[in-house]
Design a protein around this nucleic acid. Structure first.
Lengths: 154, 154
DNA sequence: CCTAATTACTCAGGGCACTGAGTATTTCAG
DNA sequence: CTGAAATACTCAGTGCCCTGAGTAATTAGG
């Protein structure tokens, strides 16, 4: 009767997009390491020694989720976790050698998967697509953090 | 070192987009009914009496997830669930009066939320955005179901 | 008919994502 | 220097999402 067409609802489409990606990741990249786990690993390869909070900020995960992902990566010995001697609240994270190796391997596969994922779009459309998603996400995240002052470079 | 820029990874962006939507939904639409729950309710308002499998197909949820969502909607007395007398395997689902009322209320709020969510884009960009997400999702879902024959209209 | 395949659903298990409450540590105000 | 505020993390609870295995009912083959 008064039902709505969900294909005009960005939230619904976002969920479907994410699910589609999840499946493709599973078949083309890894069945063990998930996309969020790769994101955390990637952040730590870029900048070893970050604490959990900072990692979460970088990859867009909240405190609890980071803790879980970190614990799984630790269980697989892909990252190390040590208490910061200078600030006993923090845990400092860094990839192990195995972690770096795994990251390298998955990076290649991820690139291939992205190509397949975006294949239905032309090169120009792909650029637009990434830009639009990013702008919407950034704006929506901005709604959460009220009027944060200008980010300093450190 | 060899780290990757995740802002060019559609999967990562898809996850962030969905999270952003989740937060906005929570503040602007409902704290009790989630977006997937609304999707199921919406499908049942459009076509009461579907079984769980069909609902899942319509809204893009797998068997297990539909079962969970349905059980939550049932707990809130928004839908009824009865065994199909003609086929004892099926559960037939239909919204209760309260379910229809709730659906109507949330429809209004959802429309408002979508406006806010898409506000950073121009009207033309919004159209492109929805189209691109849909095409990518459809294509990726197509990779899963191998060579399905042309869908019949019933 | 009656067995075998199919179909709808359930259940257990792993992982992501959020909130609210609690703990430990550090920092800051007085 | 000490008590209060802030910070990093943990834990419990809820919900979404998938897979693989199991159960009950229906359909199809011989």
């Amino acid at each position: 009767m008064a039902a709505v067409d969900l294909s005009t609802h960005p939230g619904h489409l976002a969920r479907r997009l994410q699910q589609a990606h999840y499946l493709l990741w599973n078949t083309m990249v890894s069945e063990e390491i998930t996309s969020p786990q790769f994101a955390v690993l990637n952040a730590l390869v870029a900048e070893p020694g970050m604490d959990q909070r900072t990692v979460g900020e970088r990859v867009g995960l909240d405190r609890s989720t980071v803790a879980e992902v970190v614990s799984r990566l630790g269980r697989r010995d892909l990252i190390d976790k040590v208490r910061d001697p200078e600030d006993g609240r923090r845990s400092l994270l860094r990839p192990t050698e195995d972690g770096v190796r795994t990251h390298r391997k998955l990076t290649v596969r991820t690139a291939r998967m992205n190509q397949v994922f975006l294949a239905p779009l032309s090169a120009a459309e792909q650029t637009v697509f990434l830009d639009l998603i990013q702008r919407v996400s950034d704006a929506a995240e901005g709604l959460r953090n009220p009027a944060e002052p200008i980010a300093s470079q450190r």
